[in-house]
């Protein structure tokens, strides 16, 4: 298994004491497989994704990626894992505004030491960004920005791609087109793909689905 999550627990502090968000979540994901993570608002989807990405540490439980328990890693260890193994796509795109489209595309790959200009050019072509490489993120539409975010992940060739409602900020037609392209490229890369979504229709297009309710797998 590429990703194994065991009995994951996480709560956040509040004025009334800790609020449990994840209460013993377990699942696994093999390389080359796609998994949709669904659930209502506040069910813990995004938190689970962030923990899998090593952006935050769980209170209890294990997250094992390629045999390494990232919950036990230091801050630097988790950062190295994000750089080398995991790729992230966010609803808000979260591109780096000070870098051009071309530099944003290659940024993660260069951090991971896997930069390949030919591959970047081919990706840009397939993503329809070839004409926009010299532009800055603020000069692109939402759909274009999300394609840059997807290209940034794919250019880095991670083994696990985590996407948090990647089409949530796009209109339906643009969202569908972007998802088609992402699934096609993910399939070609052979990476495992975990996507948080509200949409039943989008979830249905992935290999499997995990539904969260009140912090537990339903």
């Amino acid at each position: 298994m590429l990703l194994t999550v065991e009995n994951l627990q996480k709560s956040f502090p509040s004025a009334d004491g800790p609020v449990p968000v994840l209460r013993g979540v377990s699942f696994s994901l093999a390389a080359g497989r796609t998994l949709a993570l669904t659930g209502e608002s506040g069910s813990g989807k995004s938190t689970l994704l962030h923990l899998c990405a090593g952006l935050d540490a769980p209170d209890a439980g294990r997250i094992v990626i390629e045999g390494r328990d990232i919950a036990a890693q230091s801050d630097a260890g988790r950062a190295a894992m994000r750089r080398d193994t995991v790729g992230l796509v966010f609803q808000q795109f979260n591109l780096i505004p000070s870098l051009s489209v071309a530099d944003n595309l290659s940024f993660h790959a260069r951090l991971a030491g896997r930069d390949d200009p030919d591959r970047d050019a081919a990706l840009a072509e397939r993503l329809g960004l070839a004409a926009h490489l010299a532009k800055f993120p603020e000069q692109l539409s939402g759909g274009q920005q999300q394609r840059v975010a997807i290209g940034r992940v794919l250019a880095a060739r991670p083994h696990l791609i985590l996407a948090d409602e990647p089409t949530g900020n796009l209109d339906e037609a643009t969202g569908a087109a972007v998802l088609d392209l992402m699934l096609e490229l993910v399939a070609e890369s052979g990476a495992a793909f975990l996507m948080v979504t509200h949409s039943e229709r989008l979830a249905a297009r992935l290999d499997a689905r995990l539904h969260l309710r009140a912090g537990q797998v339903e």
């Binding site: 630097a76 190295a80 994000r82 080398d84 992230l88 966010f90 979260n94 505004p97 000070s98 951090l111």
Partner: peptide, 15 residues
């Protein structure tokens, strides 16, 4: 918002 994506892509907070 400009720093967090770089952190998410693999730089530590200390860096």
């Amino acid at each position: 918002p400009q720093v967090a994506p770089v952190w998410a892509l693999g730089l530590t907070r200390a860096e």
